[in-house]
Design a binder for these strands. Structure first.
Lengths: 198, 198
DNA sequence: CTACTGGTGGCACTGTGTGTCAAGGCGTGC
DNA sequence: GCACGCCTTGACACACAGTGCCACCAGTAG
């Protein structure tokens, strides 16, 4: 009940913010502009979002937890390239399902990729995901995450593929199939992910 | 003459900043603290450095250009894993040469890796390096950087190895040999870098 | 001596993000 | 109905980053 109300306020704020930021640009829009559009006070905004960047990045925030969870759920016998491909696919799948959510996500991705401040936050977030993935990979393969570079780098390669897919998807005018882009990206890193020396 | 003076002022500011930031922590030290220690005005600080983060990141800024230049200088017949290993090694070599510079660099790396704001700037910088490396790789192999994911991902993998080496070097109490760490990191990604499908 | 130049400090301003406090809706027990 | 906490909100003040502007103070050429 109270939880619903909170979510409602957060959505209102987020919608107003994304609308303004995407159309006018990240730097020129101030928090005052956003709260004026949403009809709330500045202080309330910062109660729901840690920063102006946070409004945008949060839109894609849960992805990281989803990716790690999916990796943990994959059968351990699966080769790393396959397990990681499935893990990374989870958030991407949400974009292919209904075109409504897809177009919204595309705008956000586009905004992030060509705003340095947002890109920095985005990468910061990815670092945390990488740590989670690396820990899971280390546990999977019985490796020491402190001395063996494989878990960290395998996680990094998976996210690199993720990034590359998003970049190509956002840049393409036509609706390139995300699945195909993902396959091509993972084909590049698969030899390293599945190398026997790992 | 005037150029020397400028460099002197910049060095003074940088030294004071690094000293304070490394010992007390990035967030708690204000620009006022730094300029007070250096005996200059706040306004002067921002004439030499674009931001507080900039003081730290600039210390490692030229690395990117060095990496790209070295890659361009490698013979084109060389397999990508070897050429990229040499390219990435250039900035790392500076740390092995004289221990004086090494310990200083280590402090800076440590500061960057456990300060989120600095890590974000650091990654932001790496994104630019990756673009440069990707362009060079695309030219090297006659690939289209817009459609083929290989150049971007190969560049990303090289920088991922670079990051991993720095992380392990900074974490290790003992003086692990950078060359060995680099070899191990590149051994992981080499199968993907040199895969024939590229 | 005067005029120009480049670096500097002081000042005011915008914008982000935080701490604090008073006021208002809301459910619960009396 | 009424008083009591509980939570949310808005408002004000504040610290800090970063920028624009202007006056000042070298040195230097005319």
């Amino acid at each position: 009940m109270a939880e619903r109300k909170r979510q409602l306020v957060a959505d209102e704020l987020r919608d107003a913010a994304l609308m303004l930021l995407a159309t006018r640009g990240f730097d020129v829009v101030t928090v005052d502009d956003i709260v004026a559009a949403a009809g709330m006070s500045r202080r309330t905004f910062f109660r729901y979002f840690a920063s102006k960047e946070d409004v945008v990045v949060r839109f894609l925030a849960d992805m990281g937890a989803d990716i790690v969870a999916e990796l943990a759920a994959r059968p351990r016998a699966e080769p790393p390239s396959v397990a990681l491909r499935h893990a990374v696919w989870v958030p991407l799948a949400a974009c292919t399902d209904h075109a409504d959510h897809a177009e919204r996500a595309r705008v956000v991705v586009r905004l992030i990729l060509d705003t340095p401040a947002l890109q920095a936050r985005w990468l910061e977030r990815q670092i945390q995901w990488r740590a989670g993935l690396a820990a899971e990979l280390a546990a999977r393969h019985g490796l020491d995450p402190d001395t063996d570079p494989y878990p960290r780098m395998a996680a990094g390669m998976a996210l690199l593929a993720f990034d590359t897919v998003l970049q190509q998807w956002q840049a393409g005018d036509d609706d390139q199939h995300l699945a195909e882009l993902t396959d091509r990206a993972f084909a590049v890193v698969a030899p390293a992910l599945d190398a026997p020396t790992a």
